[in-house]
Structure formats: C-alpha cells, structure tokens
Write a protein that binds this DNA or RNA. Sequence first.
DNA 1: TCAAAAGTGTTAATTTTACACCCATGT
DNA 2: ACATGGGTGTAAAATTAACACTTTTGA
Lengths: 241, 241
Amino acid sequence: MTRTSDAPALAPSGTSGAGDDVTRVAVSTVIFTLRRVAGTDRVQVAIPLVRRTRDPHQGLWALPGGWLDIAEDLDGAASRTLAETTGLAPSYLEQLYAFGAVDRSPTRVVSIVYWALIRPDEIVDDVENVAWFDAADLPPLAFDHNGIVDYALWRLRNKVGYSRIAHGLLGDEFTLAELREVYESILGRRLDPANFRRQVENSGTLIPTDRFRTGSHRPARLYRDNQEAELADRGPLGGRH
Amino acid sequence: MTRTSDAPALAPSGTSGAGDDVTRVAVSTVIFTLRRVAGTDRVQVAIPLVRRTRDPHQGLWALPGGWLDIAEDLDGAASRTLAETTGLAPSYLEQLYAFGAVDRSPTRVVSIVYWALIRPDEIVDDVENVAWFDAADLPPLAFDHNGIVDYALWRLRNKVGYSRIAHGLLGDEFTLAELREVYESILGRRLDPANFRRQVENSGTLIPTDRFRTGSHRPARLYRDNQEAELADRGPLGGRH
DNA sequence: TCAAAAGTGTTAATTTTACACCCATGT
DNA sequence: ACATGGGTGTAAAATTAACACTTTTGA
C-alpha cells in the first residue's frame, strides 16, 4: 500500500459519509537518517519521500503519512502510516508540530507531523514509490512539505545541541569518531575530537564496552547508549518509542 | 458565550451532519500570568480556567478553548476561542502540542493546545465562569487538562532559560528587579541581582530608557523590550503574535 | 617505519558564581 | 541619618576552546 498524507481523492478511510465540509486529521513524519555520499568521505542527512499517486499534487514527492484512524492514538498513527508507506520502524519518534493553514490543501486538512530518526541498519530500501533525498537539496514537494522539512531540520539541529538523540542515528555500538561524525554532519561544522571525547564522556550518556572497532588504524573503543541517564528531554510527556 | 474545548454536547459548530464517527479538532490554550499573592511579597504563576456548563465533565474546570472552524487557521482559532471564553488577547501565543489519545474524551477529539503569556495590564477579570488558579495547586480538571498544564509549565520553565519570553509577562517598561522577579517565580529559585543584571544587559534583549521607577528607595531604571534582537526562537516558523 | 586515527595532557579564554561594597532615595 | 533596594567591582570556580603530544594499529 502506498499512501502519502494530506487529501487523497477519497474521504478518510474507515469513516462513513464525511463530506467535504469537515476538517480531517492526517499524520505525517519527517524521517532522518545519515547516508555516506558515494565516492567521498562526507556524510549527509537524508530523508525518505513518497511519490503521490493521485491528486492533488499527483507525481510530486511528499512526506510519508496517512489519515488518523478514529480508534488510534497520534503516536500510533505515525508509526502505522510510516510502516505502511515506507516499511520503516524508527527507533526515535517525536511529535514535531501541527500544521493547519486553511489553504495548505484543497480540502481542509490538519496534519500532525512527527519527526523520526532511523539507524542505517533499520533502513528498508527498494520500496515502491519511495526514494531517499539529501535533506539539504530537496525538489519542490507536495503541499507545504518543504517548509515542514525545514522546520524539522531546525529542530534536529537544535535538539542535538542539548540532547543525546544523535545516538538514534547509530547502531547499538559505535565509536566516538562515528558519534562525532553524526554531530558534525548535523551541525555542519567540525568538532575537536579531544574536546568532544571529554564532553561526551562526562555527560554520562555513554557506556564503554570492552570491544573495539578494528580494520583501519588504531582500534577504537566501542560505546553504547546509557539508558539510565537522565533525558530530561520531553518533560511530563516522557514516552519511549 | 462560554465554551471550553473538547466534546460539547453538540456537533462541531458550523458543520452539517458530522456524526459521532469522525475525529473532531479542538483548540485550547494554557494562559500564564503572574499574580502577587495577597499579604505576601511572593508572586505565583496563575492560569485562567473555564467552568464547563455541559457534559462531559459538567461543573469541572477546563482550559479555555473551542472547536476549530473549517475556514480558520490554528493560530486564529486559538486567539478566537480565547477571546470568546475569557476575553483575553495574549501578547505571546505559541503552539504547545497536539493531544490525541483515543480515550481522552468520550468522543474522538484531537486538541491542538497553545500556550500564552499575558501581561497583568491585559487581564480581564470578572468574566462569567472564568476563574484564575495558582498553577502549582490546581483542582482536578476536565479531560486530560491537568497533564496538559504540567507539560505547559515544563515548557515555560525550559524556554525561560534560553529565550526572552519573560518580557511577555510584564508591561512595556519594567525594572530589572521586576524582570528578575518573573524569572525567580517561574524557575522557583533566587537569582543574584548583580549577575542577573549583567547577563541580561549583555544579551542585548533590553533597551534602557531614561525613565525611572520611583516610589520605594533608590529609583530603578526602566527598560523595554528590544524588538531588533535575534529571537532564534521558533526557527523557520517565525511568526509574531 | 611511516601515516593516520585513537587517546591524553596542558593551558588560555570565556563564562558562571559568589559576595563585598558604594550609591541614591524615602522615611 | 539610616535602612533599603539599585547598581558596580572583583576574584574564585567552572566550563569551553585550542592545540601539542603520545599510543597503537595497518600498510
């Protein structure tokens, strides 16, 4: 099944007789991952988009999403529509913003937008009508989705500064250099390896393992996420996805 | 007109024949202000609540709000429902979160919740069915509104740390002591007057006037908000209310 | 043995914190 | 004149930033 959020040609699935005079609720997600650029040593932020197969905006790329079911929480709708359209099940999923401008779609649609992080090993490729794009160089998207991605990128850059979400883009075990590369590609600037090491070690968010990543030069110690660490991240909403 | 958000006895206003099998969109707002506690020198965070005049939860206090109109932006709906229920027109209004748990109301309601700051001189009192409460000591509220207020308080405390929103709780001109009192009451701890002065002066968010607040002891210089200052606050959404 | 990345040490610069102290006004 | 909050000065402490240097491996 291939769907994108916002205004398909039909009424919301599973409801009876709701006409064009009601506001419908859609759920979409901006999914971030990191991708090594072929032939270079650069890493870029990439997001999956879904090609629309019906009007409005048929043929354009759009954020994955779909309609909110009547018996489904918002978080659940985000997870479900994501799985249905892209086959992905992100390790990190958080609500971003509710977009509801009257003219953002031909019919009235309020989109609850989520943003998600996904690890390279979780990526499912070769899904029909799904393609991955460089987040910094997107084509014109359907609806107001370009602006939504911009806002999600802003939130990602912001949050990476005071939270430990960057771990959500890596596998279970990773080296400090790999973690640093995540920060560098999101923030768009180089970080001092020595200072980065100390900051992240003192933050208590990492647990050193006794395993090492070998293969290149001197082996680098592998670390994993410290689940015990305070997140103080989303306040009273808490929630783990 | 007195309305609170979430599930009145009737269908959404202005729509035709939408039954109980659709998801409806409501908009509510958590409005913060500061209130001097009578007889003390303490200041507390206060919020206005509206008493529900119909089921569900008739008689309980609830956040001001109402249904989203089909031809109305989310921000507009927040402003409108706020004015209708409380007569208030906040100087600062920002989207907080979309709440959509299936069981948060007898019928399916997704609430887009805003939070707002209001200056003491903007307060309209003696509105029917509206009362102001100490945010730290609320009665049981309708729906999931207690949890919503908790989350809004968490956001307020967080944001006051890296933004200059505290100005939104004061009049056009204010002394540094008044501004410091705002921070102290939100953060719940004392701040060093000398250090507070330097931090806020160096931030460039204030413009000193040549007027002084007289009446007590040594007159204190009055400052006003610097509109030019970077807010870097809401990213690509920008927006001024 | 040499290049390159891992990891440690050291110091300067900056920011935060604590608190002593002077200033100006109403009473 | 004096109590009180307004306002300035200063130095210790903590954090951040810059960079030299040592270690360990693959080639």
